[in-house]
Amino acid sequence: MSTTLTCPNGHSSTESDYCSVCGTLMAVPAPAPPSPVPVPGDDDGPTFIPRPKPPVEECPNCSSELDPTSKFCEVCGYDPTTGSLPKPPVVSPAASDVAPDDDAAPDAPVTGTWVVVVAADRAYYDRNQVAEVQFPLGVPPRVIELPVAGDPVAIGRRSASRGTNPAIDLAGPPEDAAVSHTHASLLREGDGWSLVDHGSTNGTYVNETTDPVPANTPMPLKAGDRIYLGAWTKLTLELHPDQPN
């Protein structure tokens, strides 16, 4: 039997309890008197009583149908009453100290030396509240030059017994013990770099995001992007243009 059911948000659902697309409860009794009176007596039919559909409104952000009972767009999280997308990042380091925020890199061929600056970020550390790891004081940022091509650049903590010896090593001193031994890698992709988290214990965050990047999914980076990991580690990807001389 392949009865197609429709959920309150208008998705066609293969499940009768909760919508198989958006998870909304299917068997809600209609709050308002249903205009087309459902034929009673047919108890074996789907338990869902179609809700009278108000004029369909589209989400101005992603054009999905909006559920009039919901505060937000079910698909992209857009809030029609305030006109805003889901909560802006909390992570924004009060340290807009390093953020060269112009991604307006034109189409000019990107040449230069890619480096990663390893630094201890106080604002990020304070948010994390990892009691077991102390914030390292008085540690100058380290600059690690990335190779022109070749194997992924590993980010993690070196460990003889686990056989890890990452190029970007947070085993210190000072050690950031909240970084996984095999935490993430930078992958050379075309002219630029991508970040991939290897399912690290504490996750990896890019710029002002509150959610960690999904594991095992390369995420393209651009010059100036900040990568946050562990208890206090901030990695800034920088492109130092070639000096003609």
């Binding site: 309890d17 909760y18 909304t24 505060k71 999280g77």
Partner: peptide, 16 residues
Amino acid sequence: VTVPANAVGVEMLAAR
């Protein structure tokens, strides 16, 4: 799982 936020009173399925 992380689900999209919903209004108070809404019930949804977070995972099957």
